[in-house]
Design a protein around this nucleic acid. Structure first.
Lengths: 251, 251
DNA sequence: CGGACAGTTGATCCCGTTCAAGAAACGTGG
DNA sequence: CCACGTTTCTTGAACGGGATCAACTGTCCG
């Protein structure tokens, strides 16, 4: 089984736990017209102000959403992992309000806008499952606001590392306490709303205190409970019961 | 015509511009079972961790969403005005991930969770219009991330004031350049992720420079173009073509 | 071997915080 | 209508987390 079918089937199982899908619903999902494509790191999948063309399901690799302020400072809004839809909103909103960019080399299944609209019209339950995707996205954005708005750099960094750990694990892509974080310190800075220099100091501090171990961009968390406490991380907002896979599915 | 019918009809017209609604769709929206209720300022409509009971349509007054960090600091996530649905997510997610609180005395139409689910099942087009509501919510959250993450206090404040101006005007509730902002400086601080003391200084500075005029909590904007520039405000993210009323409707 | 980029470190600066206290506005009851 | 407690707003002084600037190190890769 190739990556595409693997991810599509994971998606169907994920959606099934959100809304009761009929056999036709499931088949319609699997039959979605799409084009699979590899995208190089750094390439844009969509730009602010563009008329969007369609949604992309990430098959492998990571993508980010970001905005750039009037004076050229970037803020990363979210990081997306395989199994995530990015730009589902672009099928229903007229203009993209942010940029979507490949963080690493990515394999995508690109689904035309019209196909999504037709699917949700004819299969309301599938529409509901996708709507829930959007709702969970919103929840993650809300937590991100708290992270950049009210947490110290140290706490925000701990929170971010905890979030990645749990999301990657829930997607069946990593063990909870060890994963690769394919972001430069500059990109982490843009995610946390601080400077790269301060990211460096914050990471070293967490490392020195034994809260994380770093080996290049591999992160290993030897003291989850304390990292969780420092970040004030409570995974409720990830809605993993509806966003992730069951442990059996992830295995 | 009372407030309820006025707001419901506005909502139907708003939704009509998002998805082509049949007469039955529109009637089903108007027939939604609900209970109208007055809520005192400060009362909670829902708390983090609660099992949600249903969505609320704001008929009058303002409501906010917020979260509180582990060390007791509050971050306001959004401010909602009449015509907004709050907690639409609560109908589809199992646990509330944030608090919803009345900012002023509020009149609400509370719609039970089951009624919403049934409505969107039987009327997919209505579901799509509501989904778009969620998507726009998400867009506003994203801009909020930029505001607390990457803008100076001065710029963030200017941006917030611009956002309120445009949203209130689009809802037909204020002229663009003058409106009441019924928030204490402490609440503004929690929205911007800064301290109340600094809110005070920031507001006075904008005032002194002639970018805003304040009379108690009335804000008047004599120099829109400059305030917009300082805030880096670009209303694209509000998706007003789908979120607001046409000028004729707002009148 | 060399050039580019990511990571590291030190010195100095500043935006926003903290603490404190006074002034104004507001609601409430007599 | 005034007295008075409470909340909100305002202002000053000192402090600190993170920014800024700059230089150096390591690493990858053609």
């Amino acid at each position: 089984m190739n990556t595409l079918h693997f991810v599509l089937n994971q998606m169907v199982r994920k959606f099934e736990r959100r809304a009761h899908l009929s056999e036709q619903d499931k088949q319609a999902l699997l039959d979605l017209p799409h084009q699979t494509r590899w995208i190089e790191a750094g390439r844009y999948l969509g730009r602010e102000g563009d008329s969007p063309v369609g949604a992309s399901l990430i098959l492998s690799g990571l993508a980010i959403r970001h905005k750039v302020t009037i004076d050229g400072v970037r803020q990363i809004l979210s990081v997306h992992i395989p199994g995530d839809f990015v730009d589902l909103e672009s099928s229903l909103l007229k203009l993209a309000d942010h940029n979507v960019q490949a963080l690493t080399r990515c394999e995508l299944a690109i689904i035309p806008r019209d196909a999504i609209i037709q699917l949700v019209d004819e299969h309301p339950r599938v529409g509901r499952a996708m709507w829930i995707d959007t709702l969970i996205d919103g929840s993650v954005f809300r937590e991100w606001i708290v992270n950049v708005g009210r947490r110290s750099a140290r706490s925000a960094m701990a929170h971010l590392l905890c979030e990645f750990a749990r999301r990657l694990e829930a997607a069946g892509l990593a063990e909870e306490y060890a994963y690769e974080l394919p972001m430069s310190q500059e990109q982490l800075a843009d995610a946390l709303g601080i400077t790269p220099v301060h990211v460096n100091r914050t990471l070293r501090e967490l490392d020195r205190e034994g809260l994380i171990n770093r080996e290049k961009r591999l992160i290993q968390i030897p003291d989850w409970e304390n990292l969780r406490r420092i970040g004030g991380f409570n995974e409720l907002y990830l809605h993993l019961d509806q966003a992730g896979l069951t442990p059996a599915e992830a295995a």
